[in-house]
């Protein structure tokens, strides 16, 4: 098969769109992080994100976040159509700063947790989850 000028153009365009699409999803996650941290740099350590290495069903992936001394923890899934998952705000009667829930993941991706500490600093943890069947329907 020979490529005409027009075919080549269409192919190139398709490739360009394919590369831009995932980037846009990540940009949305970055935006959500920036809104939460106010542009501050997130350090490492002091936060634990427990997620399975392989999730057979993306519809219910059990996760647990724990960050002693945190005021709030945001959980993000950068590979989802909408990256936001949940924000946990801990009140004065929280026994410790941890919580477990079940989330939906569209596909294999990094799950990110960022905690805002009482002193205003931020810490971040990420965990890669391999998803066999995505959980966003469609």
């Amino acid at each position: 098969m020979e490529f005409s000028r027009r075919d080549t153009l269409v192919l190139g365009l398709g490739a360009a769109v394919a590369t831009v699409l995932p980037l846009r999803a990540f940009a949305a996650a970055d935006e959500a992080i920036a809104t939460f941290t106010g542009g501050a740099e997130a350090g490492a350590g002091g936060i634990t994100l427990t997620a399975p290495e392989i999730a057979e069903n993306g519809n219910t992936v059990p996760i647990e976040v724990s960050a002693p001394g945190a005021v709030s923890i945001i959980v993000l899934a950068g590979g989802n159509p909408t990256p936001g998952v949940a924000t946990f705000n801990f009140g004065p009667l929280a026994g410790d700063q941890s919580a477990s829930t079940r989330i939906r993941l569209a596909g294999t991706q990094d799950v990110i947790a960022i905690a805002k500490m009482a002193d205003g600093s931020f810490v971040k943890a990420a965990s890669t989850v391999k998803v066999t069947i995505g959980g966003c329907g469609g």
């Binding site: 519809n59 949940a86 924000t87 946990f88 705000n89 929280a94 026994g95």
Partner: peptide
């Protein structure tokens, strides 16, 4: 909330699974 004092406040997005489940710790004064 426990006796009017907040324990946990969770904002959820669409990525929370069907039948939302939460487990957390509360201090009972």
């Amino acid at each position: 909330d426990f006796n009017g004092q907040n324990v946990i406040d969770v904002n959820m997005e669409a990525a929370i699974s069907t039948n939302p489940y939460f487990q957390f710790e509360a201090m009972i004064p």
